[in-house]
């Protein structure tokens, strides 16, 4: 079994990219590897309770539900949240300090910045 970390770093607006990073993360669990998603920098906006459907963007609800069901760890980088004044996170996304983010990255066999 491998530890895989997927890093979501970019703004989720005007793109399906972040949602696809989450769909890929679901897929990466299919061979019993342990997947952790790290929301960092502008990627933390993907972990907020935003309503993208208001601008005709499909929300990532299904991806988040699957990741939770598959017991993936979802971490949001605390300094990135604080810099942007973000407080409301999607259920099951945990705020993590830089020490925990670094521990997750160094403990991973594969790190995929998406």
């Amino acid at each position: 079994m491998k530890n895989i970390a997927v890093m979501v770093r970019n703004l989720p607006f005007n793109t399906r990219r972040n949602s696809e990073a989450l769909r890929m993360s679901v897929g990466l669990t299919l061979r019993e590897d342990k997947v952790t998603v790290i929301f960092i920098d502008d990627g933390v906006y993907s972990a907020t309770q935003a309503k993208p459907e208001l601008i005709n963007v499909q929300p990532s609800k299904r991806e988040f539900e699957a990741l939770s069901m598959l017991k993936c760890t979802l971490l949001a980088d605390k300094p990135s949240l604080e810099e942007r004044g973000i407080k409301n996170l999607v259920p099951n996304v945990k705020q993590a300090g830089r020490d925990e983010i670094v521990r997750t990255i160094t403990g991973s066999d594969i790190v995929i910045p998406f």
Binding site: R23, V26, G27, T29, L30, R62, A66, L70
Partner: peptide
């Protein structure tokens, strides 16, 4: 759609 088709079949 993929990968939910496989995830749900597997479960």
């Amino acid at each position: 759609v993929c990968p939910y088709t496989f995830v749900k079949t597997k479960l």
